[in-house]
Every structure is written in structure tokens, then in C-alpha cells.
Design a protein around this nucleic acid. Sequence first.
DNA 1: TATGAATGAGTGTTCATTCAT
DNA 2: TATGAATGAACACTCATTCAT
Lengths: 231, 231, 231, 231
Amino acid sequence: MTRKPTKTATPSAARANAKASVVARSDEAPASSRATRAAERRAAIVDAAMEEFIVRGFTATRLDDIAKRAGVAKGTIYLHFKDKESMFEELVRTVIVPVVTKLNALPPPTGSVRDLVEAFASNFLKEVIGTRRGDLVRLIVAEGPRFPSVADFYYREVVSRGMAGMRALIELGIARGEIREKNLARYPQILVAPAMIAVIWQSLFARHAPLDAQDMLRVHLDLIFGERRTT
Amino acid sequence: MTRKPTKTATPSAARANAKASVVARSDEAPASSRATRAAERRAAIVDAAMEEFIVRGFTATRLDDIAKRAGVAKGTIYLHFKDKESMFEELVRTVIVPVVTKLNALPPPTGSVRDLVEAFASNFLKEVIGTRRGDLVRLIVAEGPRFPSVADFYYREVVSRGMAGMRALIELGIARGEIREKNLARYPQILVAPAMIAVIWQSLFARHAPLDAQDMLRVHLDLIFGERRTT
Amino acid sequence: MTRKPTKTATPSAARANAKASVVARSDEAPASSRATRAAERRAAIVDAAMEEFIVRGFTATRLDDIAKRAGVAKGTIYLHFKDKESMFEELVRTVIVPVVTKLNALPPPTGSVRDLVEAFASNFLKEVIGTRRGDLVRLIVAEGPRFPSVADFYYREVVSRGMAGMRALIELGIARGEIREKNLARYPQILVAPAMIAVIWQSLFARHAPLDAQDMLRVHLDLIFGERRTT
Amino acid sequence: MTRKPTKTATPSAARANAKASVVARSDEAPASSRATRAAERRAAIVDAAMEEFIVRGFTATRLDDIAKRAGVAKGTIYLHFKDKESMFEELVRTVIVPVVTKLNALPPPTGSVRDLVEAFASNFLKEVIGTRRGDLVRLIVAEGPRFPSVADFYYREVVSRGMAGMRALIELGIARGEIREKNLARYPQILVAPAMIAVIWQSLFARHAPLDAQDMLRVHLDLIFGERRTT
DNA sequence: TATGAATGAGTGTTCATTCAT
DNA sequence: TATGAATGAACACTCATTCAT
């Protein structure tokens, strides 16, 4: 396994490298109070760490590389996080929180259930599958068993809420006669499964056999809602 | 993250500890030619390594622990494998091969397609979900991106074959009128997705919300084949 | 070896914590000219540092802890001392100076020599043995070899003067016939040795076997001056 | 504080550097079974560590330097000691044990008590004052408070035994009329104090004022036993 | 003058790999 | 072949020192 260190001479020099962030961050203003700068630094560390953790996994990630990528000195990381483990944990939380927020802001159920689910799927497609956020999901699957607190958090904040939402939608669909299979409400996982598989597929097998996730999800919805008359 | 070292004083003493093996191994005979003994040792290493890799992941696994668990000296591992990485790679191959063999021995398509798929699902349920082999799948998901050769191998030997088999079944089901959704043949992943989700669920969330995988798979099949008249 | 950090939220808050100082300091007036405030800060640092150095030794002491204990920011220390080493050196000087001053103010030799020595011992007993100042002696013994300048200073300012004083007393005692052993004047160390041992004993073994230093010193003086007729 | 690293290219090369050992070690035979070699290595580490600890103190000593001096790789140290702290503790024990053994083999009290004590003192003079073993005593004084287990051990094995021995001698001396001061038996520390002071003096002030320890001890004994008629 | 965030060299410890036995 | 002691590069974490505010 070879190392490809992202070397840049000095922190300040490297600081320019900032990429699109997983974390919400205001890229605009030069306004930098003491507190602001600290927050920016923390965000840079979170981004860099996320990137490294995704690529190498928790254990194989070196704090040195995170620091380099974030454009800060190694010691700076310890001003924001207690140690590598809690950095990983806080990090996952930090990145997931916005997702939760979104989940909570469920669009009001107007229109057909299928439209709703489709909108949801299309959003998932755009924002998760094949993106950093998708990789994060895979990361959680990968490291979850060794970080029970992370798995716990993810289950509590994302999985259980998502499941509850899906179940509500399914029940609505059943009530409205859009969904025939009544037992589906017991297993919202079935509704979500292909989307999850798509996430994993992209990071493992995309190279061997690219997957048209959008099309697959449509077929899946056809299966559940019955084929659409008009595309 | 704490270590729970499996300490046993001497290799020979530990050798007795052998558990159920993921690898086919003749547990019977005391007959031990030179070659046989070597093969046994190798098998012990493979088992031990698998166990450790599953629990800790590739990087966090120590050869010391593998050696202890296998009841051999650390150096012995290097008589069988070039280094840790190639051990991991060969290992996955070794464990996967029997699976492939089974896949190739597809039962001849007699009876209804649903029965076939159900038999398959029930077998998967028993042999994979919630078992060591299931954990192996998660391991591949976890380490795949860092071990392209492993992902390649897994795709080539398991995924693509499995997909081809599933596709054939689906096409048969469509031809026989058992499956209505014609586009499903394009995405055998949909057929398999809930099973995969079940595998992952067991190792991540079983504790929070146990999943009746068998029931879930039945609902899924009902969705695809239409509800059964008689159970 | 565990840390027991003396955490106090802010410098200003902690500033109140000031304890009895090893350093002479005017605790009275709220009068605080610029210079006074600086001097107070310096004194606070000296006290805090002394405490930490005594407990942990030079190398193991962290400037962070000194700053916290002194109720100043870390950077402030560098406004008063060049670096950790010179802080240690200046510090020892600072604390020792008053001792020297006292030594120089030898009480005029009235009364018997034994009375003089006894007064001296009793003072030592009260002010050194088992006190912070005693710990300082142990600190010098501990760090002396690595801080020649400290050892030098201590020898020049305290040891050599003290020895000279003791020698003078001994000679007087011999002249007056109070002390029989004429060679004692060559080794004032013998006169002082039990006191030094008492100092060390208190910080190392007091817990195992408490030592009645006062009684021991009396026995020692009896040995030198001959037993007292009346107690 | 400057570093004077004892650099030698390779462990094997450095191995030759072996000096006089504080630890009993057979320098003779080329006989080197596996076990023997391990013991030799351990002894080399103990010696090197002792040297470094004495010169720099516990915290300031680097394992790197110990390894270099011992002519082993850094990792090797961890084959013999759990960590730096327990190395220090075991080390002190290791070095002290022979001393204890000797103490236990007290010469049978023939001849005058003074002769006995004088023999003892002369031995102490030769073997402790101004030697590595003397430095060890100072080391214990220096680090004792931070290593209670070390102080405990030293008290239990050396101090308390030594005190008991001295007390017995003193009582014998009193019984025989060699010692006049009857209370001395309560404080054997007085008997030993000048010897201890000599130990400390040598490492701190020898440079400024060399001390004729032998002569001083004689004067001290004269004080206790009364002046000798013939020298 | 005072602050404390930031730095990065330094250090204890681990662990894959080698090799003499 | 099998062993496990020895190696040393690698890495997480610390802390004296600096400097922008």
C-alpha cells in the first residue's frame, strides 16, 4: 500500500488549497475575528479528516496527513479535538447533523406519494450517491463495529428517523391505494435498499460496471407503485 | 479503543483452540504428512486472520494476534504469505472460492422460479446473514477501496456471476409470467438489495433494532412475484 | 504517572487563588501602580513555578500548569523570564535570597554556644524541615547536577556561608570548652548533617516512619556538647 | 541544556562499548545460549538506563539514548520492560538487590563495635560515596516523591534494614560502654547522616570544595565513640 | 503589557518484517 | 520448517516557544 502524501511546504501556503467543503462554511468574507478564524480552522480540519478517513479508513489515516491537507500544524488539531478517536466521532456527528436537519424538514405530503418518494430519491441521487456523503455512509459501515458510539449515533439520528419517515410515506401510499403490498410498511428497508446498494456499488464496482442509479431507482419504484402509464 | 488480547502461552498449547473454520478443512484425521501439516497450519492462519480482520479491520489487525490465535509463531506466517497485504488478499480469495463453487453448481431450474429464489434466499439467510461470512461481506465493503485487487476479485468471482445467475432467473420468471416487472432483469441488484441490507444491518444495528431478515425477504419476494395465495 | 491539573477557567479568576508565598510579597494594599502589578505577577509566577517544580521536578513541569496556577496566560511568563531554564535558575535565586539575608543577620554571640545552636536548630525546624523550603532543598539536590549554575549559586550563597557560620560557632564552642571534639571545626557538615537528613526524610519516608526531628536534633546536640544536666 | 548524544552507527557496533556494570554480569565467557544473550541484553539496558537516569533524571532521559548506549534497538527495550516508568522502577530494584543481600550478610560482631562501624564506613566509602551507587542514592532522593513505589521499596529493603542494623550496633556499643550517648539508639540516622551528606556533597559540590569523606567520617566516629588513643 | 491560538520539533510506544537458531 | 527475539520506521500525542491581536 503506497502513500501519496499531499505535501505543501507550510501551513499558511497550504491553507489556500481549500476545496469544496462537506461542512457548511462561508467562503465569502475576509471578515475574520478570532472566533471566526478558529471556526474556519476547525472546518478545514474536519474536511481534511473526512477526506483522509474516507480514503484510508480510521486506523490507516495519519494525523500528519490531515494536518497537511487542512493546512494547519499537527498540534492545532489537538486544540479542537481530544484525540484521533474523538475526532472521528465528532466529525461524523458534525457532518451528519445537516442531514438530520434536512430529514426533519420533510416536505409536506402534497401530490402523490410516488412523486414524493421520487423527489426524495432524486435528491438522494444528487446529494449522496457517488458523492463524499455517500463515501461517508460507506465509512460508517466500515468502521461502525469498531465505533459503537458512531453506529449508535448514526442509527439514532439518521436511520431510525429515516425509517420512520419512510414508513409514514408507505402507509400513506397504502391508504391511498398507490402501494399494493401492505406488508411493506413493516420493512421500509426494502424501499431504501437499492439506494444503499447504489451507494456502495459506486465506491466499489463503478469501475467494473457503471451503474445507472437513477434508472435502477425508477425500476424499483415501478415495482412498488406499479408501472407508470406515462414516463 | 481497547485490546482484548487472546493470550495463550505457547503455540502448541493454543493450537488446540481451533474453532469452526470458514475454510474447508478436514478436522478428522490425525494423519499428518509433511504437506498435510503445512496445509493445516495455513488453514489455521487463514481462519485466525479472517477473524481478526473482521473484528478490527485490516490496518488495526496485528500479526501478533493472528499468530497467537492461529497457534503459530509470528515468523511462520511469513512462510505462507509474502506480507500482511498479500495475506489479506489471498485470504479473501481462499474464503470466497467455496462460495463461487457453490454458485456454479446452480440447482437445475425445476419447479417455479419463486421456489428457486426462495430456496436461494433461505440458504443465504442461513449461511450468510448474521454469520462470519456476512461479516466478510462487510469487510470487503470496508476495505475494498483500499484493496482494488480484492474488490476486483470479488466483483469478478462473486458479484458478476451472482448477477448473471439472478438475471437468468429473473428472465425465466418474466418468461413464465411469474414476474410482471420486465425491467427488473436490467437490475438484479434490486432482487438482492434487501439481502445485502440485512447483512449490514445485522452487524451495525442488530443491537438497536433486531431485524427479522427472513420475514423481510419474504415480503420482498411478494413484492416481486405478487403475494402468495397460500403460505 | 498521572496529572492532576489545577484547572481554573480564567487567569483573572485564578488570580484570587494566591496562597502563602515563598517569596516576600506585600499582600496588603490594593494600591497597584504599573510597576507594582508587574511585580505581583512575577511573584505569582515564581510561587506557582516553585510549587510545580517541587512536585514534578524541572523537566516534568509544564509551563501551562505554572501559568494556570499563577493565574496568568502562558505568554506572560515570557515577559518575565527568558525561558524555562532561566526561569528555574532565577527562581531558585529569588527564593533563596531571603534565606541568605537572614543568615547574614547572625544574632550576636551572647549566651552559650549551645543556646545559639539550639536556637538556630529550632528555627530551622520550624522554617525548613517539612515545609516548602525544605522541599526546595530537596529540589536543589535533585536538579543540581543538571543545573550547575544553580548548584554553584546555592553553594556560594548558602552552603559556604552557612558552613563558615557554623565553623565560627564551633570554634567558639571549642574555645569556651563547650565542645570537646576539636576536629569538628574541620567538618561543620557533621553539625548540620542530621538536619539535612531530617529534611530529606520528611519528603521521602515520613509516611513509612514519621521522624521526630526536634528530638533527634536534641540528641545530636547532646552528642556534640555533652548531655545537658537539666532538660 | 545541551544534548550530548552518544551516537554509534549500529547496535551491534555499539555493543562493544560495554562499561563496568552496576549490575552483576559475567564478562567472561563467549557462552551465549538464547537465554544468556537475553540476560546480557537486559543487563546492558539496565546499565545504560541507570547511567542516563542518573545524569538526566527520569523525565529528561530519552529511551533513544538508553537504546543507543545499550547498543540495542529502541524496540528491544520493550521486550524487557513494559514502559519507561516500570523500567525505572524495576531498574532501581535490580540495582539495589545486591546491596540488600550484602546488608543481610552482616559480619558477625567480633572485635570492638567501633571497629565494626569503621569497617562498615570504609566499605561505604569505597563502594558508595562518589560512585555510581552513590549517584543512585541521589537519584532516589530526586525522583522518590514522584515514584512512591520506588521510595517504598527503598525504605523497606534498604533504609529500614540498615536502620535496624545500625540500631543493633549502637545498642551493643552502649552495652559495652563504647558509646556514651544512650539516646543515640533512638536515632541511628545520626550515625549515618554524615555518610549520606558525603554522598550528596560529592555529586553537588565536589567541584567547589572537595570533601575528604574518610577523614570526616573518622571525626564523626570520634565524636560518637570518643577520641581514639592511637590513630 | 497581556493574551492564548498556533506551531512543529521531540518522544514514548507499536508493530510489520527479518533472521539466527 | 518453525520459532520468537530483535529491529527501526512510523505514528499519536505533548509542550516550550512565538506572535498576531
